[in-house]
Amino acid sequence: MHSRKRASMGLKVSAVCGLAFLHLPILLIFLYAFTTEDKSYQFPPPGLTLKWFGVTWNRPDVWASLQLSLEVAAVSTLLALILGTLCAAAVSRAKFFGREAISLLVILPIALPGIITGISLRSAYNILDIPFSTFTIILGHATFCVVVVYNNAIARFRRMSGSMIEASFDLGASGFQTFRYVVLPNLATALLAGGMLAFALSFDEVIVTTFTAGQQQTLPIWMLEELVRPRQRPVTNVVAMVVVMVTFLPILGAYYLTRDASSSRN
């Protein structure tokens, strides 16, 4: 649906205002990272400084949380890549009974509020007497990251000509060769995009993590503490800005990866 006519002023204004509503608050984060004020959230900032970047750099607790977050995100992404790709391959390859149910099962962990996943895992750990650890965090994260990889992979599988795989067999390739020379190269950018999004999702996740982390602090948990009981306002400001930037990169990357694939098709 694309019209050559021009949009009315009212529509234009409401569209632009809507987008501004989505973006201005995030931009504010960038401003606050440079404020000289450290006791309140004063606006406009009385002055600008780079000093809080140095302070944050020397904070071992921030580094420890960052490290844990990166570890969790890396392992969860890897697991999600494996599980999501397998699932997408199966669902796209054949019509079988229960296909819809499987799609629903994959989507459920993000369609239901995170608190459900969180409290479910929490009660399962309670019943099975599993102590909290990095492992318990990863279990949760990998579960809701699968869907991101799955969605990207299945979209690519659908776009792949089905006869391409058949052509490979027809030309004498084994199953492994077909996977290596045909499926994987065509899937690669979709997997990379899915993996990046999964990484961003995990790196940022807080709701499920509050139920599965115990005493450990991921970066979002560290931030949540600061939000509830502000102690280090300037450091939080800087961390918030870094988090925004760290999550933007994979999102932009994923966007460009999937966009190229869809435009080269034409």
Partner: peptide
């Protein structure tokens, strides 16, 4: 313009509003 706010950090978004709605905000 929609994807970036959708994917950007949930906590940071809340934090931004804490800044916006604060007494001196």
């Amino acid at each position: 313009g929609v994807m970036l706010p959708l994917w950007s950090s949930y906590l940071v978004k809340i934090y931004a509003w804490k800044l916006i709605l604060a007494k001196q905000g």
